[in-house]
Amino acid sequence: MSLWRLKSLFLQEILPTWAAVGYDERCGQFVEHLELDGSVQASGEVRTRTVARQIYVHAHAAHLGVAPPASLQMAEAAFAHLHRVAWIGGTRGGYARAFNRHTDSITDPIRDLYDSSCILLALSWLLTATGKDMYRDHIDQALVAIDRTLKDPFGGWAEDSEGSLPRRQNPHMHYLEATLALCENNRTSAHMRAEGRAFALLGSHFLVGPKGPLHEFFGPQWQLSAQYGSDRLEPGHMCEWVWLTTRHDMLTDSDHTRICLDLLSTALAVGRSGGSPFLVDLVSALRPVSPSRRLWPQVEMLKAFLSLYERSGFQGYLAEADDLASAIMGAYMTGAPPGCWHDCLDTHDRPISRTIPASSLYHLWTAVADLVEHDARARVRSPSETS
């Protein structure tokens, strides 16, 4: 199956490539991107969210036993560097949004919910992979910083320490992802409360009406308005919520199947056009407004199909996922440097990326991790060969 060819490609070629080229040994930190020829990023500027996601990938892969030999060591060194350079203490503490890995200087001191959520995800898996209590302490410190620095009177959390507008669902979605990982791996009552608060925002603010599309942009009191770009929708995020909602239901023994089906059907209806199997990046008034199709929405669509297959057992979802995996490898990975991909295509499937961003490594890994865990469950269910 194409799904397992994608898994093999990632584990045998992509992850080892990024472990070798995507990590700067001189400073002990991951890079922001590779150049189009597969060479390392020349500049030292990195976003906190990007390096945090690479820390997560290598820690999670190490825990599952499928990582390159040095992955966990690199993940721990990268977090130590990140914390030393980017942590800002005080009553409104948190991690700076960007820094220069060469000079160890902060280049953007704003504390951002998106970045903070990615750090929580990384810390959850560092704790799980190593069992070291210091990561538990960092998790507690990061949760307190989010609640203090990004407190918002109208629910959820502020976009950043500056209170920037519009407010977005995307950082809250990734906060949910991080708290899900905390609950799945190292559950406490505090983690469960945080996960519950984050998931509740889906029904209270992000979805309007029982079959409403997932909204992205809001005013300061969560109002929808053209002033804040509320007419712009991202099909990839609708698919990502299918995956997260399925995990929430497994954690809490709840059932939001109808929401998942509505989200996926809306994503496919508004995001696919011209007979392409791929989603466009952005739509407005339910029509495509972006000529681009980045890799990550396609991977999130793949995860949505897999989630619904795991939820229902319906073989049609598995077939859709397999067809999509084949299309992704054919369009996004053919002609790219070994271990890399074309990160963005135009509507004629021509590459238009300027770099190979490390952020997409995270999206690919989350799909592959689901396949690795699916295989592990299948082995447990199968009769023992030694019985």
Rank of each mutant, 00 (worst) to 15 (best):
A20E: 15
G22H: 11
Y23V: 05
V31Q: 03
S43L: 06
V46I: 15
R47L: 07
R49Q: 13
V51A: 13
A62Y: 10
H63E: 12
Q73R: 14
E76S: 10
A80G: 07
A80K: 11
L82G: 09
R84G: 11
A86K: 05
A86W: 04
A86I: 02
A86S: 11
G94P: 05
A98N: 13
R101K: 15
H102E: 15
T103F: 07
T103Y: 08
S105H: 13
S105N: 04
D108K: 08
I110T: 15
S116Y: 02
W125C: 07
L126I: 04
T130L: 08
Q141L: 07
A142V: 13
G156S: 06
L165T: 09
H174Y: 13
Y175E: 06
A190R: 14
A190D: 14
A200L: 09
A200I: 08
L201C: 13
L202I: 10
G212L: 02
L214A: 09
W222V: 09
S230V: 03
D231V: 00
R232L: 06
E234I: 00
P235Y: 01
P235K: 03
C239G: 12
W241Y: 02
T246I: 00
S254M: 01
G274E: 04
V283R: 12
P291E: 12
F305R: 02
L306N: 05
Y309G: 01
R311L: 09
F314G: 02
L324P: 01
S326L: 11
S326V: 01
A327G: 00
Y332F: 13
P337R: 11
W341E: 08
D346Q: 08
H348S: 07
R350W: 04
R354W: 00
T355R: 07
I356Y: 10
I356K: 09
P357K: 03
S360T: 10
S360D: 09
L361T: 01
L361Q: 01
W365R: 04
T366N: 12
D375I: 01
R381Q: 14
R381D: 14
R381Y: 05
S387P: 05
